[in-house]
Amino acid sequence: MTEGSEKVNDRKGTWKVKAGLAEMLKGGVIMDVVTAEQARIAEDAGAVAVMALERVPADIRREGGVARMSDPGLITAIIEAVTIPVMAKCRIGHFVEAQILQSLGVDYIDESEVLTPADEEHHINKHVFKVPFVCGCRDLGEALRRIAEGAAMIRTKGEAGTGNVVEAVRHMRAVTSAIRKLQGAGPEELVMEAKRIGASGDLLEETARLGRLPVVNFAAGGIATPADAALMMQLGCDGIFVGSGIFKAENPSARAKAIVAATTYFDRPDILADASKSLGKAMRGLEIGAIPQEELLAGRGW
């Protein structure tokens, strides 16, 4: 630590520094953990970061009620247990939860639809924070609205807590196919497309020029097996969030290691076959059609 010797030319909390940490997480797996012990298991298995939570999404879904930011005591215990970055979730629009998480020293905040939204019209203005934010999306317009508000990293929403990858695939394909359609569009077409999808013209223009989102894009929501992780990587995401899929499985440590290997060697079916062997039972999972409409999480967010 620097003891009061802060250099005058050090620029903290800049866009480059916020988006830069996401760049460092690429090709990695971020795992939901609810105890310091689970955080250590995740780190041992090769996680690039952990998401500190009181309940994994599968339990939030089962228990119902209002889901809020986790107990700061739990988050601090997890921060102290591991050397990798620690993320934590706040409710959509709940900027005070975000202020608290920043003061705890979390490395990334997930403004998450998995928790009960606190504002049904607005997300947090993330530009005013020094800590970077990740937000979920279902399509390109939603991704660019979150980036406009200051999100330095994007993830698919998928359908958290289901162990069913189908929604994450839908959201990833929606984003990549929308970006592909921008290729070759003229400036006047980009203006109308920005209006149609509710995105900033500048960000849409940048996306068209890059041929990808202007920030790192991870897959999340329903990933439960090494093959699921590799599927999302082959569909073009930059890395993987696994929520309930690890610690709701029979052998969390082996499954965590296998998903880490699958995310690196996503295009090598021989290595994936090897990694997928003898992992015990995956989490049971839910069919999306069997979930009542009002209990779907992905619709939260505006």
Binding site: R11, V17, T83
Partner: peptide, 15 residues
């Protein structure tokens, strides 16, 4: 020493 400057909010740009 890893993470020697502190946590992410202490990350910075400089010349």
């Amino acid at each position: 020493r890893r993470n020697a400057y502190g946590r992410q909010i202490d990350s910075f740009e400089a010349d």
